[in-house]
Design a protein around this nucleic acid. Structure first.
Lengths: 251, 251
DNA sequence: CGGATCATTGACCCAGGTCAAAGCGGGTGG
DNA sequence: CCACCCGCTTTGACCTGGGTCAATGATCCG
């Protein structure tokens, strides 16, 4: 029943048949809102693994939603120290800060091949004007990001290395799972130990030794990225309750 | 032309004569928006130093704006470890997360006597519907909080103890200064070294030794709270550019 | 005067950092 | 098919930034 793509095929996934929307975690949009989002969408952008989606200091004219794949947000210090701030999975907004405040204060890099829905920054105000409900949704999404950052801050500030690592892997796996990035087919989170180190504020060497301990406890397995063996075990070790299950807005 | 206060005098600062609004950092509201905010406001709440304004896990029916005073947001782990997430100064929104997602995921405590403007959570949707511009402003504020958290995360994750302390004090001082909490009269930030420790993810003892080093360098002075002697020096030590100076929305 | 709350200091210890050197595929050019 | 390189992981040896414990001051307040 797949509709034949136009020659240009800019949009392989029109919003009306968005593969994400049917997922149970996403709140349904009203018909007119969906129609608006659909017009709001400028096209799709495919990026390769390792590509920089947005660069700190830039003034991108665009705003994105992740359609598929993994990415992460990070900041660099002038001497090269890197801090990963959060991970991005399908349904997440990319570049909202830049859209609201002008300049990006962090960079975004793809962890895997990705597909992004492209929106125009300038039309955000119209979105708020025409569909306040969508504006509310965007605030909701920003607020949820804030919550995740709070928890990450708690983690880096107050958890031990082992707890931190357990928390991070449980967190990323939960988020991936919620949007279907992890399944019985695909079980790996596409990150390296360097990513983990730069997220947890640890050195690469110590991160390796810490992950090794998690592996000894049969909580994870590390071959070609990270595979979670025992999500509950990780959560318990970290003292983490898990993600809220409330349905969330999309786009 | 001042209107006589009613006997109850719930509102000593009606929005029209808000002492904050005239400050140069705040964007001006249009007349009808101001009128709406004014009706949106339920009253004022005075809390004492040390009081808990909002508690993690609660479902407050209210949303606040800080009118005067200092506060901080924090999370606790079950075993008592505390992580301070951010500080609040006049103009900041308190409890937005709770309003959007239901349950508060962090607590808020007053660092000094405070005055808060009280709004009703349930009316948020109406605000978005009737005044999309205000909705946009709220998203802007949430996004700015996100930026601050990003920077704090970088700090805890990648800066040394000395850099972290310098960053924190410069950061809090800058924010206080921007809204007139610090002046030639009042020069102290009302925090204890325990607060600093719980913000930076350090022990109290080490925090003390670190602050001592900053004092030796004549960057700060610690008598009865923290007094900043050399803001530029702190910023340089931390490798921090300072707060954006763009005008921000209020309420 | 007795108790609180904070700040300060010294002695000692350990989690995590740094340095250095291997492993271990996978890709690629010869 | 082999040699070599590259990106990533793993391990060991050693060191240090920051933690823990314990005690002492300094104010303030009732």
């Amino acid at each position: 029943m797949a509709k034949r793509q136009s020659e240009k095929a800019k949009q392989r996934f029109p919003c009306e048949k968005c593969p994400l929307r049917p997922l149970p975690i996403f709140r349904e949009l009203r018909a007119e809102e969906l129609a608006f989002v659909s017009r709001f969408k400028r096209g799709e952008l495919a990026v390769e693994k390792g590509a920089t989606v947005l660069l700190e200091g830039s003034h991108s004219a665009h705003l994105y939603t992740v359609l598929s794949g993994w990415a992460f947000r990070y900041k660099l210090m002038t001497d090269g120290r890197r801090q990963i701030l959060n991970y991005l999975v399908p349904g997440d907004l990319v570049g909202l800060q830049g859209s609201l405040m002008g300049e990006m204060q962090h960079s975004v890099e793809a962890l895997s091949p990705m597909l992004l829905c492209v929106f125009e920054r300038g039309q955000l105000e119209e979105l708020y004007r025409r569909h306040p409900g969508l504006g509310y949704d965007i605030t909701w999404i920003a607020s949820r990001e804030e919550q995740m950052l709070d928890e990450n801050l708690l983690s880096i500030g107050r958890r031990t290395a082992l707890e931190r690592a357990a928390y991070l892997l449980a967190f990323v796996a939960s988020r991936g799972q919620a949007v279907g990035l992890l399944s019985s087919d695909v079980r790996e989170i596409p990150i390296t130990q360097q990513h983990v180190a730069d997220t947890l504020g640890l050195s690469l060497v110590h991160t390796n030794k810490t992950i090794r301990k998690l592996a000894q406890r049969k909580l994870v397995e590390w071959r070609d990225g990270c595979r979670i063996l025992d999500l509950e075990g990780l959560m318990e070790l970290a003292g983490w309750e898990g993600l809220p299950t409330t349905p969330r807005p999309l786009l």
